[in-house]
Measured scan of single mutants.
Amino acid sequence: HRQALGERLYPRVQAMQPAFASKITGMLLELSPAQLLLLLASEDSLRARVDEAMELII
């Protein structure tokens, strides 16, 4: 289940942060499945989480 969510998330994360897409997707997969579904449904929520992840990385 998580694998399938990751496969759906990755291209969207890659479009926002290509250099760190794998790392960010891995970080996002730590969230609950319900939270992941919310990110897939909301571009704004996904962008906010990706921005948060980038702050942790750099």
Score class of each variant (00 low, 15 high):
D44E: 14
M54G: 01
L39D: 02
Q17G: 03
R47W: 06
Q35V: 15
R49P: 01
I24Y: 00
L56A: 11
R8E: 14
A19H: 07
V13N: 00
V50G: 00
A34N: 09
M27G: 02
P18F: 06
P33Q: 13
Q3G: 08
Q17F: 15
L38N: 07
H1M: 04
A19Y: 11
D51A: 15
L9E: 01
E30C: 09
L56Y: 11
R49Y: 13
E7T: 10
D44I: 12
E43A: 08
I58A: 14
A34T: 14
S42I: 03
A48T: 08
L31I: 09
S22N: 14
E52N: 04
G6V: 14
L5Y: 11
I24N: 00
M16R: 02
Y10C: 06
A21Y: 04
L39E: 02
I58Q: 10
Q17I: 11
V50E: 03
L38D: 09
M16S: 03
L46E: 00
E43I: 09
I57K: 01
P11V: 14
L56I: 10
L37R: 06
L28G: 00
L9G: 01
E55G: 14
R2G: 13
A34K: 14
R12D: 03
L36E: 01
G6D: 04
S45E: 11
L28K: 02
R2E: 13
L39Y: 02
L56G: 04
A53V: 13
L5C: 06
I58E: 08
S32K: 11
A15N: 11
F20P: 02
E7K: 09
Q14M: 09
P18S: 08
L29C: 04
A41F: 08
Q17K: 12
A15I: 11
L28C: 01
L37I: 13
L37H: 06
E52H: 10
A4Q: 13
P11G: 08
L9V: 06
A41Q: 10
L46M: 04
Y10K: 07
R49L: 12
V50C: 03
R2T: 14
A21T: 04
D44Y: 08
E43W: 09
L37K: 06
P33D: 09
L40I: 04
S32C: 08
L56C: 08
R47I: 09
K23M: 09
A4K: 14
S45C: 07
L40K: 00
D44H: 04
L29F: 03
L29K: 05
A19N: 09
M27A: 11
A53W: 06
L40W: 03
V13Y: 01
M27S: 02
Q35E: 10
M27V: 05
R49V: 09
E43F: 04
I24P: 00
Q3A: 07
Q17R: 15
K23L: 08
I58C: 05
G6E: 15
E30F: 11
I57N: 02
P33I: 15
E52G: 05
S22F: 11
I58H: 07
I57H: 02
L38S: 10
L29Q: 02
L46G: 00
R49I: 07
R47Y: 03
E55H: 14
P33W: 11
L56S: 14
I58Y: 09
R47K: 09
S42Q: 05
I24E: 00
R47P: 01
A48H: 07
R2M: 15
E52D: 08
L46Q: 00
M27C: 04
H1S: 04
E55N: 10
L31M: 09
E30R: 08
R8F: 14
K23A: 14
Q14Y: 15
L5M: 14
P11W: 05
Q35K: 07
L36N: 02
A48V: 12
F20I: 04
P33Y: 10
K23H: 05
S42D: 06
A15L: 12
S42L: 04
I57A: 02
M54N: 03
Q3Y: 08
R47H: 04
L29P: 00
L31G: 06
I24K: 00
R47M: 08
A15E: 12
A48W: 04
K23C: 08
D51H: 07
A53S: 09
R8M: 12
V50T: 02
H1I: 10
E30P: 01
A19L: 06
L40V: 04
E7A: 07
Y10I: 02
A21R: 00
Y10W: 11
R8P: 01
Q14K: 15
E30S: 12
I24T: 00
M54V: 09
Y10R: 04
R49S: 11
A4D: 15
Y10G: 03
I24R: 00
L46V: 01
L39A: 08
A4S: 14
P11R: 15
A19P: 03
V13F: 04
K23N: 05
S42T: 04
S32P: 08
A19K: 12
M27N: 02
F20Y: 13
L36I: 09
I58T: 15
A15C: 07
A15W: 05
A19F: 13
A4P: 15
D51W: 07
S32L: 09
E30L: 10
Y10M: 10
M54F: 12
L40D: 04
A4H: 14
Q3I: 08
L36H: 03
I57Q: 02
M27F: 07
S22P: 09
Q3R: 07
Q3T: 08
G6N: 07
Q35M: 12
T25A: 04
E7P: 03
I57G: 02
I24S: 00
D51K: 15
R12K: 14
Q35Y: 15
F20L: 10
V13R: 00
F20S: 03
S22W: 05
E30V: 06
L29N: 03
I57W: 02
G26T: 12
V13D: 00
Q35H: 05
A34H: 08
A48N: 12
L31S: 09
P18G: 06
Q14C: 08
P18L: 04
A34F: 13
E30G: 08
R8H: 06
L39C: 11
E43K: 10
V50S: 01
L38W: 06
L38F: 14
A19T: 13
M27P: 00
R47N: 03
V50R: 00
P18Q: 04
S32V: 07
